[in-house]
Design a protein around this nucleic acid. Structure first.
Lengths: 131, 131
DNA sequence: CCGGATCCCCCATGATACTG
DNA sequence: CAGTATCATGGGGGATCCGG
């Protein structure tokens, strides 16, 4: 393992309260592992968007989950919601600085996924063929 | 947004097949968002472990999900399983090089979480108080 | 000690319909 | 356009028993 990785492991295992279930880091990670949160953050990363615009861009999200996920992101301070008093009304969502700040670490994960998904596919083929 | 972040966004939106539901990157990310996968990877990051040892360290995982998650990780080539023909039998799990390679990008996310969870907590308090 | 098999519950998600 | 309200469902995951 690289030294950098070892550092992360040590920090993880010595995190406040340890890696137990009430560890605040695990609380944040649970949100990251939400089905739609990061997808919406990455979609908003290219600029502010309106409700139905998001719905079109993330075409397989239901209206309910879009509303719900946006509210959660707003509650966590990742997304700002602004209502324009036009007619018909329009609502714009944009990333806050906090929301933008997660793009970089999440981007590393995307890069890893892009780089390694062929290996994972190969491993699966071997595993499924062997058993 | 930082230039680095903008780069990630561009790559994401120009990913193979785009950010659609059958994008291979989303397939990998779905695994990352699994409830237990990354927790086990980080636990195994500090060295090979036996089954019940993992069970003790991740105390709130059920036996069923531990078995299931380890099998999925093995299938994806992230974890290697080795059986020692002792009596009683013992089984050791360890990260493969592929498994170790995800520690760094995932570590960035943990660092982000550790650094920003106070802000998130504060944002929630404001939101819950305002509404 | 390491798990496979089974039962079952419940909540996240989806579908649909309605409102300001 | 941007949601809310309500109902249906399915599979993730816990509890438990069993076997090698």
């Amino acid at each position: 393992m690289s030294e950098q990785a070892a550092l992360y492991v040590e920090r993880w295992n010595n995190a406040p309260e340890g890696p137990s279930s009430d560890c605040p880091v695990r609380g944040v990670l649970d949100k990251i592992s939400d089905k739609w949160s990061m997808l919406l953050v990455m979609t908003l990363a290219s600029g502010p968007k309106r409700f139905n615009q998001l719905r079109r861009e993330v075409s397989d999200i239901s209206q309910k989950m879009l509303t719900q996920t946006l509210r959660d992101l707003q509650r966590d301070g990742m997304v700002a919601r602004r209502v324009y008093d036009t007619k018909p009304p329009s609502v714009e969502y944009r990333l806050t600085p906090l929301g933008e700040s997660i793009i970089v670490p999440f981007g590393h994960l995307i890069e890893w996924a892009g780089h390694n998904h062929p290996q994972i596919g190969a491993a699966r083929a071997v595993f499924d063929g062997t058993n």
